[in-house]
């Protein structure tokens, strides 16, 4: 047993972080918010060139030939910078939809929960999106459409993954969502700590007050527990492990963003602070397939199935 990142995995994670820091740093994030939900096609192709979408596609099919753990590390970094776009759907379409692997084609999908992200901007939509109605999305960087319940054949029912894995798309979507939530949770924790170290009141950094300190510590505890669960689920690809990972990562991201907002005080309630972007994205992701209710029911069923260890 060696449940730690390998040197290659560390390098890959650092590489993705570097690429995203250069191409989607804070200024770019704020500019994207100001511009409204427009997909940056150039960035999308760059991600394609870097292998983000073709990461798990076999080398024989022009992919990078890596596995779920590596994909999870990449999605964690995407979640950290709040990278917008239907990343998971396009990743899952690599090798199935022409041009998805290279980032030439932007693919979205009808989620099991009945929502479609980035419908107007995508080139291809997987699943039945007829009659989809736009919502005024709470997240400024995730445009949403709602599919009528009767017509909403979720992607879970559409097709299993191609040659790259045995799991159907629903648990994979949930796993990658968990990875994105993990990255956002880690960012929220770091942002809160940074603020608590520098913001002074009563003549000292507010991070010296235990009430603030303990909020920050709780954020880190949630991040680290979620990290262990998400990485393990990427290794085992077990649907019950994925449900556990998703539940903990959703919690780490949503509660982490909430606590981050609290640590920021009044500034956390402003548009100019980035904290609300973390929270709104985290909220948006919680609605994807494998939501808390679904995951908890799956985990409950596992307890009485007789196969749980």
């Amino acid at each position: 047993m060696d449940f730690q990142l390998t040197d290659d995995q560390r390098a890959l994670k650092a590489g993705v972080r570097e690429l995203l820091a250069a191409r989607f740093g804070r200024e770019r994030l704020r500019a994207a918010v100001d511009e409204g939900p427009r997909l940056d096609r150039a960035l999308w192709r760059e991600l394609g060139e870097a292998g983000f979408f073709a990461l798990r596609l076999p080398e024989a099919e022009g992919g990078v030939g890596l596995g779920l753990p590596e994909a999870v590390l990449a999605f964690e970094e995407a979640g950290r910078v709040l990278l917008p776009g239907p990343l998971i759907a396009t990743h899952l379409a690599a090798g199935v939809v022409d041009g998805a692997a290279t980032g030439e084609t932007v693919v979205t999908a009808v989620d099991g929960g009945g929502l479609v992200e980035w419908l107007a901007e995508a080139d291809v939509v997987r699943g039945e999106a007829t009659g989809a109605e736009p919502l005024r999305s709470v997240d400024p960087l995730t445009p949403l459409h709602r599919v009528p319940v009767s017509g909403g054949a979720g992607l879970a029912d559409v097709r299993p993954m191609g040659s790259t894995g045995a799991l159907p798309t629903a648990p994979l979507t949930s796993l990658f969502t968990a990875a994105e939530q993990l990255g956002t949770a880690a960012r929220a924790c770091e942002t809160a700590v940074q603020h608590a170290r520098t913001r002074e009141q009563f003549g000292q950094p507010i991070g010296a007050f235990q009430a603030v300190k303990h909020l920050c510590a709780q954020m880190l505890v949630r991040v680290e527990l979620a990290r262990a669960a998400v990485y393990a689920a990427a290794v085992t690809a077990d649907p019950v492990d994925i449900a556990a990972a998703r539940l903990l990562a959703d919690e780490a991201a949503v509660r982490g963003a909430r606590d981050c907002l609290q640590v920021h005080g009044g500034m956390g309630f402003t548009w100019e602070s980035d904290v609300h972007l973390c929270l709104k994205r985290a909220w948006t992701r919680t609605q994807r397939t494998g939501s808390a209710t679904e995951s908890e029911e799956l985990l409950a069923a596992d307890l009485v199935s007789g196969v749980g260890r």
Binding site: M1, A232, A292, S295, E296, E297, A300, D302
Partner: peptide
């Protein structure tokens, strides 16, 4: 759901141990 949540919790604690 409460018990399901605890299943997630202890599975994750086992992974954190590993």
């Amino acid at each position: 759901r409460r018990l399901g949540g605890l299943n997630a919790e202890f599975r994750a604690l086992w992974r954190l141990t590993q």
